[in-house]
Every structure is written in C-alpha cells, then in structure tokens.
C-alpha cells in the first residue's frame, strides 16, 4: 500500500490549482458574470507570489500578494465590464492575453531562480499514520485553504442571506435591482473574489506545485478551471469532484503509460481526462430541470438599470 499515499498526494497537487480557480469562477458566474480571464489572472498571481516569496522569504505574504494580484486584474475586468458595460466574454479573453504579457514582463528577472516549496504540515503521530497520515495531515497550507474556501463558498451561497442575494442577482439582476439590491457592487465583490482565488491557484503553482517561475507556466489550467465550473453545474461540491476527477485522471493516464500499456498510443491516453469529463458531464446533465435550477440565468449579460 505504500504506493497509494504518494499517488493520492500527487492527485491533490494536480487538483488544488484547478479547485482554487474553479471555485472562484463559480462565485463570479453565480453573480451572473462570465470572466474568461482565469488563465491570465492565474499567471498574474503566480508571478507576483513568486517574486514576493523570493524577495522577502515570507510565504504568507507571497500568498496574500498572489491573491491581491489576481483581485487587481479582476478589478480591471470589473471596471470594463461592470463600469463601462464592455462585453464580458471578449474582455475576459483580452485579460488572458494581457495577463500572459504582464506576467512575462514582471517575471523577466526571475526565470531560473529556485525556491523552496511551501512547508508541509507535520504533526508527529498523525502525519505518521500509513496512507491517511501524509495525505490528510501532510499537506501545505494552500491545500487546506482550498477546502476551507470551498466549504465557505458552499455555506455562503446556500446558507446565508448575502449568498441568496448574490444568487438572485445572477438569476435576475433587474428584479434584484428593483428590490433595491446594489447589483453592480455585489457583482464587483464576486468578480474580485474570483480573481483572488485564481491568484491563489497561480500562487499554488509557483510556490508549491512546481516552485519556480517560467512564462506561461499555468499551461492552460485556467481553461480547465472554467470548464470545471460548467462540469459542476455551478455547485461547489461538484467543483471538488470535477477538479479531483480531472487531476486524478491526468495522473492515471501517466501511470497507465508507465505500466507499459503503450499498445495504446500515448496521444489517446492523454485524451482520457478530457473525454471522461465530457462523459461524466453528459451523465449528470441528463436531468434537465436540475441544471436549470443551478445555472445562473443572466450569465454573461450586461446589466444596466435602464434595461
């Protein structure tokens, strides 16, 4: 069984950045906004977290800075889409282009700089339990934070009044506005939160998963995170499922290759996570009414009180 724990730990590492970015985007979309700039914000968070960590040696500060950078880039998106009513889909894509360039610019002096990974939790006694110990009690702070955040988001959306308001803004902003809710301000907070989470996902990449900075190191994970929100049918619990399914399948196909099952060309094994995600989505989408209940009705549409 000594192979199980490292495999589980690898899956957690592969899934955590996806979980952060996807749970943030879920809140954004629940408020009725579609921000396709996740990839750009992840890179922004990754580069700033790395720079701060190298310069100050303070990983807590680095994590906060990564989140702040993601939020700042999301703020830019908010100014354009919420303030100036620009098209959300196009602005999000432009934010990704911008983020790739900006992160490369900021990180120029940091390519090839090594960094010690975030420390892992180590509780004598507990961490030593076989399999369970290192998996449950041997992770770094961001992994635990990803679960805390997911729990909080689920609680916030479905158990608090503010969460209800946010969802109603996503459902019908005009009705929410008529009742007197500040639609734009609520969406702004959601967008900033989404940016901060994408920034944390990026910070996890550059501080823990592969502690280094290299241009475009997110390698498309922002896009996968976007797909996972849809996969999860906008429910926080399913985001965890999706992120871990995707991370797990990525690892599984690599393991399959390693076990010499290369009678199947590697390209087809590389396809497995993508195809499996589609298949599972089809299975859970068949009940049309439940999807409609969760998909925010006003997603992607510009809101202005004049209608």
């Amino acid at each position: 069984m000594d192979i199980l724990a490292p495999i589980l730990i690898s899956i957690i590492a592969a899934s955590t950045p996806l979980l952060f970015a996807a749970i943030g985007e879920l809140v954004v979309e629940k408020s009725g906004v579609l921000n396709l700039g996740v990839e750009g914000m992840m890179l922004g968070g990754a580069v700033i977290a790395f720079i701060i960590s190298v310069e100050t040696g303070n990983s807590a500060l680095a994590i906060v800075a990564g989140a702040a950078m993601g939020a700042m880039m999301a703020g830019l998106f908010a100014v354009l889409t919420l303030g100036l009513l620009a098209n959300q889909v196009a602005t999000g894509l432009a934010l990704t282009l911008f983020g790739i360039g900006l992160s490369a610019l900021l990180g120029q002096g940091y390519v090839g700089t090594p960094l010690t990974a975030l420390p892992k939790l180590n509780i004598p006694g507990l961490t030593d339990i076989p399999v369970l110990g290192p998996v449950v009690f041997g992770q770094d702070v961001l992994v635990y934070l990803s679960f805390v955040v997911t729990g909080l988001v689920a609680w916030f959306l479905y158990r608090t009044r503010a969460g209800l308001v946010l969802r109603s803004v996503g459902e019908n902003p005009h009705a929410a506005h008529a009742i007197g809710f500040p639609v734009i301000r609520i969406r702004l907070f959601a967008v900033l939160f989404g940016g901060a989470m994408a920034g944390l996902g990026g910070a996890y990449l550059s501080l823990s998963y592969t502690p280094m900075w290299a241009e475009e190191m997110s390698a498309g994970r922002g896009w996968i995170a976007l797909a996972l929100v849809v996969f999860a049918t906008w429910r926080p619990g399913r985001v965890v499922l999706g992120a871990y399914l995707f991370g797990g399948l990525t690892l599984a196909q690599l393991h399959l290759q390693g076990m010499g099952s290369s009678a199947i060309p590697s390209q087809f094994l590389n396809m497995v996570p993508y195809i499996a995600t589609i298949v599972v989505l089809v299975l859970i989408s068949r009940d049309a009414t439940r999807i409609r209940m969760n998909a925010p009705a006003s997603i992607g549409k510009v809101f202005h009180p004049d209608g």
Binding site: P6, S10, A13, A14, P17, L205, Y209, T210, M212, A214, M217, A219, R221, T250, L251, L254, H255, Q257, G258, S266, Q267, N270
Partner: peptide, 18 residues
Amino acid sequence: IWVNEWYNPGKEADAAKA
C-alpha cells in the same frame, strides 16, 4: 512516459511523480 508537450511544468512534475 510521453506528455506530448515540450513544456508544461505541472504535467512534467506529474509524470516524474508517476
């Protein structure tokens, strides 16, 4: 193990772990 990319730090790390 083939990752079918020249450059993807996360996936390269995953392949090494596997």
